[in-house]
């Protein structure tokens, strides 16, 4: 293996990790507050479709991005209303949200854009100076803006969740909503905020595909990425850093298997394609003794004044 190969694989890994990062960080914030949203994939699809549609019609990528984030937030709001206000079973609500987003984005695509089209998405933006550093520069600093933002999001999310009063509230609401409630924290409001924020990030995840990385939309563009993003939250043990590691691991293994195929390795492609999924499980299994601080109230409905 030469440096060029390693550079290629790592920079692929970073690009592939981008949508997972947005979606999984968003999902982490929601889950830490105690709400499981299985509908990430549907929200991503809506974000991808709306961002692409707006960018195509207005010619403005920024408007597209804002619209994608906006529809994601709206879907987050729907999830919050159903799971927090109506206290519905979270797992099934998420599946409903997924089916709704998948169907609606396919339907709207069919009646508005109709034919597969491409646009010029966010261009690659080499960071001055940093991108000149050999190896590192090429791996980390020659991507489009949404890739940088995704990675910048990790420390920000970590800081907000762990070092701010708001983050403390979020964690309290996820660990022990009754206690938080008795201390005067508005459980519903916190969860509304986190789930809506999570939806917004999922919307951006979709937009990062349709107007930055792939620059097109077609039905089921995400191909199940949202579910992988949910899985990565568990991989990361509800820690933003863990989610980052998981996204990078999954995506880099994927980049490796693509590279092996391109190089013409004689292993059947199906086995290579399995690699990211198997490695993710194995790595997590190998860390069986890690300490995981699961939000105790995750996937449980909170009724004020009960118990």
């Amino acid at each position: 293996m030469t440096w060029a190969v390693i550079v290629g694989i790592l920079s692929s890994g970073i690009r592939l990790a981008t949508p997972y990062l947005y979606a999984a960080v968003g999902e982490t914030i929601g889950q830490v507050s105690g709400v499981l949203n299985l509908g990430v994939d549907g929200v991503m699809l809506m974000g991808a479709y709306v961002a692409f549609f707006v960018a195509l019609r207005t010619g403005s990528l920024s408007l597209g991005l804002i619209a994608g984030a906006g529809i994601g937030a709206m879907f987050g709001l729907i999830m919050a209303f159903i799971s927090v206000t109506l206290k519905a079973e979270q797992g099934i609500s998420g599946i409903g949200l997924y089916l709704f987003g998948l169907g609606l984005s396919t339907f709207l695509f069919g009646v508005t854009i109709k034919n597969v089209q491409t646009i010029d998405g966010f261009p690659d933006l080499a960071i001055p100076a940093l991108s000149r550093i050999p190896v590192i520069g090429e791996i980390f600093f020659q991507h489009n803006i949404l890739v940088y933002v995704a990675f910048a999001l990790v420390p920000i999310a970590w800081f907000v969740l762990n070092k701010t009063p708001f983050g403390l509230k979020v964690r309290a609401v996820g660990q022990n909503p009754e206690a938080a409630d008795s201390l005067g924290v508005n459980v519903s409001r916190v969860r509304y905020l986190t789930v809506t924020l999570g939806g917004m990030l999922s919307g951006i995840a979709g937009a990062s595909l349709s107007i930055a990385l792939l620059n097109t939309f077609q039905q089921n563009l995400t191909n199940g990425m949202g579910f992988i993003a949910v899985a990565l939250v568990y991989f990361g043990g509800w820690r933003v850093s863990g989610v980052l590691l998981g996204s990078l691991l999954f995506s880099t293994v994927n980049a490796v298997q693509l590279w092996l195929q391109v190089k013409g390795v004689t292993i059947p492609s199906d086995f290579l394609l399995m690699m990211p999924y198997i490695v993710t499980i194995l790595v997590l299994a190998a860390m069986a003794n890690r300490r995981v601080n699961a939000p105790a109230a995750l996937n449980k409905r909170f009724e004020r004044g009960e118990s």
Binding site: L86, K87, A88, E89, I95, L99, F107
Partner: peptide, 24 residues
Amino acid sequence: PSALIGALSGLIVLLVVGSEIFHR
């Protein structure tokens, strides 16, 4: 497009689980 029905079945799921609060 049959996708419309896909969207509606998702909506039905949301509304039905959402409405269970009255049952509870």
